[in-house]
């Protein structure tokens, strides 16, 4: 049994202008100590997926179907208080997007780090501060940071603090939602190095959510490519990059300029992603797909295992 099993998860937003199917039937598994990257463009549902895993979907959104099992125990049906007591921060925690805004400006860093420790464990304030000091050192900062306020820190330091907070209760799974998006490349490389180190030393499972194909390969053993609320391809990072199957994955990889090698003419995907209130009836990528053929507009392709551990949802690879 995998550590985390997500099965047919659906998260919809009930807006006044219709139901937005942000996550619409997503399934995947995550083993202990594994790193999974979820890539996709803006609006593909990757952040909503992250919020769903923590049961923190903001209204008017809610999980309308499927299961999220941690060690076989479903958390979708759990009461909010049970999730808060048993799951959030303890089993699964999150490094939020835009660390700049994830910290409370009127509390010192130390106060913010010890808060989950005081709430979730029986530690005294002294013990909690001791643990906070350990955490701060583990993310490569000086303990004096604990007495500082967020505005006194640089972007990279703030991001490290947010990572330290996510690690406070030694969770099994850490979700990192665009952890380096607002940072400069040098700082980004430092943060990614830190996450690699923590992954190796603490044997944490990491789910890395990003739009950046370069960042995702830095950390992920497996990659899920999302498009319009669905996973269209899933496999080992090597499979995805060396032998991409789905036309969307292929196009995405060819759309990114590289730093090395010959300069090829970049490709782009014409059109825009569908409106998730009324997605197209068949494959959601079909209207933009260069290889569209007869079944694509009519019927949604099932996700199949094309080769061992390499899954794809595309009619090109499916016998009907």
């Amino acid at each position: 049994m995998a550590l985390l099993e997500v099965e047919n998860l659906r998260t919809y937003f009930y807006t006044l202008r219709g139901v937005v199917k942000a996550v619409d039937g997503v399934s995947f598994e995550l083993e202990k100590g594994e790193t999974l990257g979820i890539v996709g463009e803006s609006g593909c549902g990757k952040s909503t997926l992250a919020w769903s895993l923590l049961r923190l979907v903001p209204p008017p959104g809610r999980i309308v179907g499927g299961q999220i099992r941690i060690d076989g125990k479903d958390i979708v049906g759990m009461s909010e208080s049970e999730v808060r007591r048993e799951i959030r921060w303890k089993r699964i925690s999150m490094i939020f997007q835009g660390a700049m805004n994830a910290l409370n400006p009127v509390y010192t860093v130390g106060d913010q780090i010890i808060e989950p420790l005081l709430l979730h464990t029986n530690m005294t304030k002294q013990e909690a501060l001791e643990r906070a000091r350990e955490l701060i050192e583990a993310v490569g900062l000086a303990p004096s940071i604990l007495e500082r306020y967020p505005h006194e820190l640089s972007g990279g330091q703030k991001q490290r603090v947010v990572i330290a907070m996510a690690l406070a209760l030694k969770p099994d799974i850490v979700i990192a939602d665009e952890p380096t998006t607002a940072l400069d490349v040098v700082v980004q490389a430092q943060i990614l190095n830190l996450m690699k180190k923590l992954h190796q030393e603490e044997k944490m499972s990491i789910i890395l959510i990003t739009h950046d194909l370069g960042v995702v390969t830095e950390l992920s053993e497996k990659i899920a490519v999302m498009y319009a609320g669905k996973i269209v391809e899933f496999g080992r990072a090597e499979d995805i990059f060396e032998n991409p199957l789905h036309p969307y994955t292929k196009a995405l990889i060819r759309a990114v300029p590289r730093l090395k090698g010959d300069i090829h003419k970049l490709e782009y995907i014409p059109g825009t992603p569908p409106d998730l209130r009324s997605p197209p009836p068949g494959c959601r990528f079909a209207p933009r797909c260069p290889r569209r053929f007869e079944p694509c507009d009519k019927e949604e392709p099932p996700i199949i295992e094309y080769s061992k551990g390499h899954y794809v949802a595309c009619w090109l690879y499916t016998k009907r």
Partner: peptide
């Protein structure tokens, strides 16, 4: 040296800053 190029082999090494 700090820019991540999309190459799965990068996963196995730390970036030399």
């Amino acid at each position: 040296a700090a820019i991540p190029d999309p190459d799965p082999a990068n996963r196995l090494k730390f970036r030399d800053l």
